[in-house]
């Protein structure tokens, strides 16, 4: 068989029909991608604009400092905001060390056995379990069995269960991304496993771990179902003073206002959503800051 260049020495500028068709397909695909991106972004923009238009007029110091009320002009989110901050802080305190330590164990310490694999697969499955199921679990175990009642602690522990799989999985990914050549180099100069983990694995994995933790906590902030399940109240006219106090949370308050017939309460719900988003963005900004500081060193 004779092998010759397929263009047979033609000069440039004679694009074949097939090449023209391929260029058309390429442009179509690009247009499709741009189209869907624009669609997603504009839906989000519309949503934010709508919420802003409804809620911003209600957003003032009084709204942040007042407890819920039957009268829309007197109603505020103080108890819900404090409740959310309490629950999220406690959840972070419980789930962060537990999740990260579990991830370190599974990646660096656990033997490569069938049992380890079964555990890993089940953690991945747990990440997909509907949140209401965790609510039922929390109700049965923390509220009833341990007698924690409808406390901040019971809520935080339930939320911790909910986000633990997410934290473990993302921390595992971050730890696995640390090249094994670094670990071996550290062992080769006489390091123990703990020294390798502390000085090389964790510092390199922390940005990735933090990203996962913030995503998980963001999920916890928005969750309503498990908190309703464990009986977080909708009308709470005080802020929690300790982990054993009763509480309500922003999404519950928002849902409560949105389900009332009066239009003013619907606008209050929008204002509540803005507060919720603000808390979320503050947390993300904090994470970015910590990551930035971490990579500076």
């Amino acid at each position: 068989m004779k092998i010759s260049p397929s263009t047979n020495g033609d000069s440039l500028g004679h694009r074949s029909a097939s090449l023209r068709r391929r260029h058309v397909v390429a442009s179509l695909f690009k247009a499709l991608c741009i189209g869907f991106t624009l669609f997603a972004v504009s839906v989000l923009g519309l949503l934010i604009a709508q919420v802003g238009a409804d809620g911003l007029p209600w957003l003032d110091a009084q709204f942040l400092n007042n407890f819920p009320s039957r009268f829309p002009e007197k109603a505020g989110v103080k108890s819900a905001l404090y409740g959310t901050l309490w629950v999220v802080s406690l959840t972070a305190l419980i789930a962060l060390p537990m999740g990260v330590l579990a991830a370190i164990y599974l990646e660096d310490y656990a033997p490569a056995s069938r049992l380890t694999r079964v555990i890993e697969i089940n953690i991945a499955n747990l990440a997909g379990v509907p949140s209401i199921v965790y609510g039922i679990l929390g109700l049965a175990i923390f509220v009833r069995f341990f007698g924690l009642e409808r406390s901040v602690l019971a809520g935080a522990m339930t939320m911790s269960l909910l986000i633990l799989p997410v934290i473990i999985i993302s921390s595992k990914e971050a730890i696995r991304a640390v090249p094994s050549s670094i670990r071996l180099a550290a062992y080769a100069v006489g390091a123990t496993q703990w020294q390798v983990v502390r000085s090389h694995v964790l510092p390199a994995a922390i940005p990735g771990i933090l990203t996962g933790v913030i995503l998980a906590l963001s999920r916890a902030i928005g969750e309503t179902a498990p908190l309703i399940m464990i009986g977080a109240l909708t009308y709470v006219a005080f802020t929690p003073e300790g982990p054993m106090d009763e509480f309500t949370a922003l999404p519950i308050q928002i849902f409560n206002w949105a389900s009332r017939p009066q239009a003013e309460f619907h606008e209050l719900a929008a204002a509540g959503i803005i507060v919720l988003l603000a808390v979320l963005l503050t947390m993300n900004a904090l994470a970015v800051l910590i990551r930035y500081k971490g990579t500076q060193k």
Partner: peptide
């Protein structure tokens, strides 16, 4: 761990720690 104090190792691909030159040697 003690064995590796007596036998140092250099690997196929350069694998410095992602740290300063000083820290690499001093660690």
């Amino acid at each position: 761990v003690e064995v590796r104090l007596h036998m140092g190792m250099v690997f196929q691909r350069p694998n410095p720690f992602p740290k300063s030159i000083f820290r690499n040697v001093a660690w």
